[in-house]
Design a binder for these strands. Structure first.
Lengths: 342, 342
DNA sequence: ATTTAGCACTCGACGTAAGAGAGTGCTAAC
DNA sequence: GTTAGCACTCTCTTACGTCGAGTGCTAAAT
């Protein structure tokens, strides 16, 4: 268990390192306003903190930097989220209230605000599709061989996919089927569509439609793979301003990762409701060993929808970011609930 | 006018610099197989070429590097496009033939191939919307206040936009209007839609519809601003492997530019049909002063559609890239014409 | 028993100097 | 016209010395 004084010193060192990105020496800690001990005393405590694993030394004659364990302790016990300034709050509000827009635009905007406010990179996972339900299906033939299938969800989101028309399919029947689907499957979550196709309305279709097999194969392809979440970035290049990324090889690696939506989605998907902080190796992903990922979930009317996330160096301005994220997630939830849940 | 020998030497130097990215000295030029002159002779010629502005020296005791003028001359007079290897060709073909897909997927794939083959960054501008025409319009109310407008084009592309429903608008009328539009404006290029709305069918609408003004405002918003081209990237990070970008500040600048689709679109939009090469400052854009942009246009059935482009260092493998681009643009045109022009 | 002053020591950062190496430009010989 | 030879130039690398921030230990002060 750490003593009161150790806590004070640990917090001082981390706060200092967060802002200056340089190893913190005993002298500069001692000089702080709320610090009434001499450098020598601090040195002794620092030595202890190092032995306990909360601090480390880049080399023997440098100051200390927080270890991953140090950050973890800081986050768990010493962190007090910063209240947002009125300016920040009104900044968020104003962007949201700008105009009526599709849910994805709102999300995209959120990512942008988040990165602007934090000056880190923000990553927002769009509403998870399995929560949204079918509003309307359209299949529009483009040529003799292809058609565009359009799915509109209750949130106003539009998915579209080009599908080949199986040879010999009667387009008249296709229309009929689309109508049946629109009548009977409205309100069904997208992820269940494929399943319902065979269970719920399978019999109906078989009765009305000659080429049931052909039709099914077409519809299956229409409903396939809408499970991939959209990923929205804000301030992709913000993180390059951090000294941690002053080497092009790393940058390259990072941006390659950014291109892999599936990976990003996996890394940022929140496991729990609420705010999560993953520091360094807690991300279980080697290129992020010196990064912290903070995620928060947003919801529509209490139903979990997606995740807003921030990627920054482990040396992140935790108080500020946590404050912002918290506010943001709640505000976003409120907004989305108001707009799309009536 | 340059002598035969000067041409030979200029070409040798540029070829060498392109592959090794280091100033080329007289000795290494002299050692080339096809070079039968001593370093001293070469030095004299190099000196002349420098005076003529085709070469420059990073410093007085280094070898020469090509100047922008040097590259320009090389490209205009010395360049012989590389024939693609069978492997490369079949690589391209196989990706294209993979499966039936929407035009945008084809374009995206093209960008990917292009960057893989060249190991530079590729940027492909999607089909310009003004060429594509209306296939079908749908307006689907989502709530009492909002609707999704969906425009399907003849190429199978889907545009969608959320619009607010003006207060007091009769949704029954809306349906009627959509029907009228689908009957009368099918085949009209998207960019003309707004115009036709008031001219062609204005009178019809006025006759049938009470709230003509409200309706018009909604439709206007539906048809607005589809002129922004989509931009597809391939190998965004490829260019970071170039020594020219071994400094993070530059990388940051570049990636910021990448985020600005409008700017990219402007920079890469081809002015003429066919292949264009812009070297360094010819791009008229300071961050690209040490980059070359090569663009080629693709077409459907002869109608200009969009641009494929490559961004690399001025020290680019011109023969290879030009060969690839040429093949690619033609192949893409052929493919698109076959698929979407029947 | 704590705390602190003092001091030797460590180690990276920075600046300077020396040497190597690649390349040039000029001159004179071929 | 071409080329060998050579002095010269400039960068790059390495080595070395110095500076300064910071530590850890010891002994004195509280």
């Amino acid at each position: 268990m750490l003593t009161e004084r150790q806590l004070l010193i640990l917090k001082a060192i981390i706060d200092d390192y967060i802002t200056h990105a340089e190893p913190v020496g005993s002298r500069s800690v001692s000089k702080r306003e709320d610090m009434s001990y001499s450098p020598a005393t601090i040195r002794n405590e620092m030595s202890d903190l190092e032995e306990l694993g909360f601090l480390e030394k880049p080399h023997s004659s440098a100051g200390r930097i927080p270890s991953q364990k140090g950050y973890r302790y800081y986050v768990d016990h010493l962190l007090s989220p910063q209240k947002l300034s009125k300016k920040d709050k009104s900044g968020i509000q104003s962007v949201f209230q700008e105009r009526f827009s599709e849910i994805e635009e709102v999300i995209q905007q959120s990512a942008k605000i988040l990165s602007n406010l934090t000056s880190y990179t923000s990553i927002v996972l769009g509403p998870e599709v399995f929560e949204s339900t079918l509003k309307q299906l359209q299949i529009i033939p483009i040529s003799n061989e292809a058609a565009v299938a359009i799915i509109v969800t209750d949130t106003g989101h539009v998915e579209n996919q080009t599908v080949a028309i199986p040879e010999g399919l009667n387009t008249h029947d296709l229309e009929k089927v689309v109508n049946i689907i629109n009548e009977r499957l409205k309100g069904v979550p997208l992820v269940h569509l494929r399943h319902k196709l065979t269970t719920e309305i399978g019999k109906v279709l078989e009765k009305y439609i000659d080429q049931y097999d052909l039709m099914l194969s077409l519809l299956n392809r229409t409903f396939i793979s809408h499970q991939n979440e959209k990923v929205f970035f804000g301030g992709k290049t913000n993180i390059l301003a951090q000294p941690e990324f002053h080497n092009v090889e790393r940058v390259r690696e990072l941006f390659n990762i950014f291109e892999e939506n599936a990976l990003i989605s996996k890394l940022f998907r929140a496991e729990d409701q609420g705010l999560t902080i993953k520091i360094g190796q807690e991300n279980r992903f080697e290129p992020f060993d010196e990064c912290t990922v903070i995620t928060a979930t947003y919801a529509i009317d209490g139903k979990h929808m997606g995740t807003v996330g921030i990627l920054g160096p482990t040396r992140m301005e935790y108080p500020r970011v946590v404050g912002i994220m918290d506010y943001m997630a709640k505000d976003l939830s409120k907004l989305l609930t108001n707009r799309y849940n009536k």
